[in-house]
Computed example of a mutant assay.
Amino acid sequence: MSLFSRDREPPRRPVEDVDLDSLVALVAESLGYSFEFAHDGRSVTLSPTGDGPVGDGTVRAPGDGAELLVKLTGLRREAGRRAREDWPMLVSEHLAHAVATSGERFDVCDLDQARPLLGTRVEAVDEVPDLTRVVGRHLNADLVELLTVGARPVRPEESGCWPLPTGQALDLAVANVRGQDRLWLESIGLSGTPVTRLTAASPSAATHLRWLGEYLPVPADGVLVVLPDPYTLLVHPVDGIGVVRAIERLRVHAARTDGLSSQVYWWHRERLTHIKADIVAQSGQTRLVVAPPPEFARVLARLAV
């Protein structure tokens, strides 16, 4: 009997993987590389052919450059979350990024290598060209906390290689920030209103709000916060009716710096809430019109008694 001697057909691969591999091959050739996929489909090895463009538009000489291993696990996961019409751009960006960062001494797709280099960077939402091409979470509607490795943002297809959810990766980065960076404190005055300026060595000052109580006393009603740049926090305690004057001083200062955000926020119960405060010019005079959120309005009413 020869039931077990017959050659078995290899398992059929999902059509999505086949289509994505076709795009990878096409883009690799356009960049001047030959390619060889791993048997499990988790990576592709690119070898320079000498007839493709380099970043500055010149042509790579034959044999110039070493082989490049590009992992595809994260790319496949990201492709599964996006429409097929997005795939050509997704693959093109992934391979171009892999070529551009081939000189890095670490493999971002290897979590053991990337873990100690993970950090955060806080940016204004409007300043991030495409939130789908970065990894992060909103601090509020205006600000986003990006996951970084070294000095650059992590891409979704890179974090997709890791054996843990994005939220946990961000928690690892936050822990790194806490352990590796300390804020410098300085008391300053804004037109007679005392505030505390806290400065970080990395562009992740707002990340430190989570443990602000380690730096200064935080009242039960929280603090006012402005973020003139990613490295700086200005805070004022919400501990008396003088907070109304502080909102004005902080808002004017934030508007003048024209940095990360021109708004005033309320940090309370682990949330960063926008306090709407508009600077209005009328009849040659400038005044501040404050429309606080309901919860903060109740705090102000209680402090006014």
Score class of each variant (00 low, 15 high):
1 M>D: 10
4 F>H: 14
6 R>K: 11
7 D>R: 13
8 R>A: 15
8 R>E: 15
21 D>I: 00
24 V>K: 08
29 E>G: 10
30 S>M: 05
30 S>V: 02
36 E>V: 12
44 V>Q: 12
44 V>F: 10
46 L>R: 09
49 T>G: 09
67 E>S: 13
68 L>T: 04
69 L>M: 10
73 T>K: 05
77 R>G: 13
79 A>Q: 08
80 G>A: 13
82 R>K: 11
82 R>E: 08
83 A>I: 00
83 A>N: 05
88 P>R: 02
90 L>N: 04
90 L>S: 05
92 S>A: 11
93 E>K: 12
97 H>N: 10
102 S>N: 06
105 R>T: 14
106 F>V: 14
107 D>H: 12
109 C>F: 02
110 D>N: 14
119 G>N: 05
120 T>W: 01
122 V>Y: 02
122 V>I: 15
123 E>T: 02
124 A>T: 02
125 V>G: 04
125 V>K: 05
128 V>L: 04
132 T>S: 15
136 G>T: 02
137 R>D: 06
138 H>A: 12
139 L>S: 04
139 L>Q: 01
140 N>A: 02
140 N>F: 04
146 L>V: 03
146 L>R: 01
150 G>P: 06
151 A>W: 01
151 A>C: 00
154 V>H: 00
154 V>N: 01
163 P>R: 03
165 P>R: 01
166 T>S: 12
170 L>D: 02
171 D>Y: 00
177 V>P: 03
179 G>Q: 15
180 Q>S: 15
181 D>T: 07
181 D>M: 03
191 S>C: 04
197 R>Y: 02
197 R>F: 04
201 A>H: 11
201 A>L: 14
206 A>F: 08
206 A>C: 12
210 R>A: 15
212 L>G: 11
221 D>H: 10
233 L>P: 10
234 L>T: 03
235 V>P: 06
237 P>C: 03
246 A>M: 09
251 R>K: 15
252 V>H: 10
261 S>F: 09
262 S>E: 14
264 V>W: 07
265 Y>T: 07
266 W>M: 08
267 W>V: 08
271 R>Y: 00
275 I>C: 05
275 I>H: 07
276 K>W: 05
281 A>T: 13
282 Q>F: 10
282 Q>W: 11
283 S>T: 03
284 G>N: 08
288 L>H: 07
289 V>E: 14
290 V>I: 15
294 P>G: 06
296 F>N: 11
300 L>M: 10
305 V>M: 09
